[in-house]
Every structure is written in structure tokens, then in C-alpha cells.
Simulated assay, not measured.
Amino acid sequence: MNRVQLTENISIARIVTGLWRLKHWNLSTQELIAFIEKNIEIGMTTMDHALVYGSEAPFGKALKADPTLRDKIEIISKCGIKPVGNSALHAKQTNHYSSSFKTITESLNQSLSDLNTDQVDIFLIHRPDYLMNINEVAKAFEQIKKQGKAKSFGVSNFSKTQFDLLQSVIDEPLVTNQVEFSPYQTEFLESGLPELSQKTGQSIMVWSCLAGGKIFDTSDEKAVRLLGTLTKIQHEIGAISVEQIVYAWLLKLPYNVIPMTGTSNIDRIVLASQAQYCELSDEQWYEILEASNNCQVP
């Protein structure tokens, strides 16, 4: 697995293991240890969490059961989403976001406790908060860095303007922005974030690479059209699966796009990891974009 150097001291896997569904996989601690070990063997050593996912406590049990795993992986965590029904996140009646100093610091402390670790490698603000005080966020990040609880910081689902605003008060570069992007959901390409990534070298982590499975929905006209083109190109280049073509399409972009998986199926994770060896031509890349947009490139 190729790696991406985010800072002088932090590199991560070219494809990240997404764990937002972990609590629904019903894995025992030993099964989760085996899952982590297999990902490490593949080279997918970077694990994406968030406090709101409920993935961190079971993952922490695995790290406690096998402490040797921690030094072999990089952990991403996120904070700031407060849904109703999750008493630990303090939402009583209304789903909301919070990026206050108190929320950021308390959320990280909870994540560290759940994960059974003293430090995360990357800590993100999970969603743009309309009530965000950027100076308060900067203060929280500064304290966390001094305490050694996070190596680096970033954001998730931020627009270019929101990213620029927060970066203006953070002394060190925000290392990533997690966004939704896939051949099915292509709005990212016109968001200004690709240009920002090339200009600054900041990475883009991509979630929902398969559009939550929508690409395979035979009742969706767009998905059927897109799947036909993906399958055609799969055969043209001799790839093993359509999923590999999707990941290869994302990896072809000329900046640090880092796709995230979302499955417990190791076979699918192996296929995703091998997408780095699938080479699409420029024409094939645009053919997929045309299928998504249902119109020719002008």
C-alpha cells in the first residue's frame, strides 16, 4: 500500500479503513483484532473513527487486548456532532453541532478513553458549525497539541471558504478535509476544494466512495447508466471488480485524494487496496464522469 506524507512526522495509508459502521458489524474483540491485523498486513494502517460513530469503545477493547497493535496504526477521530438519543453527547431534543472549546476538549478526552490510547494521529471537526467561534477552536487545538493528545488537526465536510477561515487562525496546516465524493456524487469537483488541495498540498479524504451502495441500485437510472460504464472499463483494463474502478477513478486525481472504505469484508478491502495498480486513461476517467452527468464533456 502506498502512503501519503501529511506532515514531516505523519504519513498515512493511501486508502483509509473507515469504521463508522463498526458497531453494527457485531464482531467479537478477537474478530476485531483479526480484522485490524489483516488491514495492517495489507498496508491499510489508518483507521477512521468519530465519537458519534460508537466505534471507538469496541476498538479500544481490541487495543487493550493486544497493546502491540497501537504502534502499527494511525488513528483518526472526529468531534462535534450531537445527535438526539446519545446521552453521552448531550443532545436532549434537537440534533445539533458544537465546536466550543469545552466540546472539542471533552470529546477528545472521551475518545482517548474509549480508544484506550493517549494520543490520536489526526483530530477533526466533524461538521461545519454555524455557531463556530474560530478563535475558540484554535485555542482548543493549541491546548490539545501542548498536551500531546493529537499529532495533527483537520476538518470534515467543510467548504473551501470554511476551511480557509479556520486555517487563518491555526498556526500549523490543517492536514485534511473529509468530503463526500464518488462517481455518483461529483459536486466536489466544482467546490474549489480540488484547487485548494493542489495549491496547499492538503489532502482530501473521501467518504461514501460507492455512494452508500447506490452505484449498484438497479432501480436508479443514474446508477444503472454509471454501472454500465464502470463495468465496460473494468473489462477494458482487466480489473477484478467495479469497485476497483471506482477507487482507481478517485486515485487518478492529481492531488492527495485518500479514499475510505466502509466494509468489514476483508476480500473487498483487499480489492480496494489493489485499485492503486489499476490505471485509467484520461479518456476513461472522463467517460465515467460523462456517465454520471448524463451529458458529454463540452
Rank of each mutant, 00 (worst) to 15 (best):
R3L: 11
R3Y: 12
E8C: 12
A13N: 05
A13R: 00
I15K: 00
I15A: 01
W20V: 10
R21N: 12
K23G: 12
H24A: 15
H24N: 14
N26W: 12
S28V: 05
E31D: 13
L32N: 08
A34S: 14
E37M: 09
K38S: 13
K38R: 13
I40K: 10
I42H: 08
M44Y: 00
T45N: 10
T45P: 02
M47H: 09
M47P: 11
L51R: 11
P58E: 04
P58I: 03
F59C: 08
F59V: 08
K61R: 14
K61F: 09
A62K: 02
K64L: 12
D71I: 05
D71Q: 13
K72E: 02
I81L: 07
P83N: 04
V84C: 07
G85Y: 06
S87I: 14
K92F: 11
Q93E: 15
N95T: 10
Y97A: 09
S98L: 08
S99H: 06
F101T: 11
T103S: 12
I104C: 06
I104A: 02
E106N: 10
E106C: 09
L108H: 04
Q110C: 13
S111G: 02
L112T: 03
L112V: 05
L115S: 02
D118I: 05
D118F: 05
L124I: 04
P128I: 07
M132C: 13
N133F: 05
N135C: 14
K139M: 14
A140E: 03
F141M: 07
F141V: 03
E142T: 15
K145A: 14
K151S: 09
S152F: 09
F153Y: 03
S156F: 08
K160E: 12
T161K: 15
Q162T: 09
Q162V: 10
F163T: 02
S168C: 04
S168F: 10
D171F: 11
E172F: 12
N177W: 06
V179S: 03
F181H: 04
Y184A: 04
Q185L: 14
E187C: 14
F188E: 05
G192Y: 00
G192W: 00
P194Y: 01
Q198L: 15
Q198K: 14
K199T: 10
T200W: 07
T200N: 03
I204M: 02
M205R: 06
C209Y: 06
L210E: 07
G213L: 01
I215L: 13
E221W: 05
T229Y: 05
L230H: 01
Q234I: 07
H235R: 12
G238S: 03
A239T: 08
V242G: 02
V242Q: 08
E243L: 14
Y247A: 02
L250T: 00
L250N: 02
L251E: 00
Y255L: 11
T261I: 04
S264H: 12
N265L: 10
L271T: 13
S273H: 05
Q274T: 09
Q274G: 09
A275Q: 01
A275N: 01
Q276T: 12
C278P: 07
L280W: 03
L280C: 00
S281E: 06
E287M: 13
N293E: 13
Q296H: 13
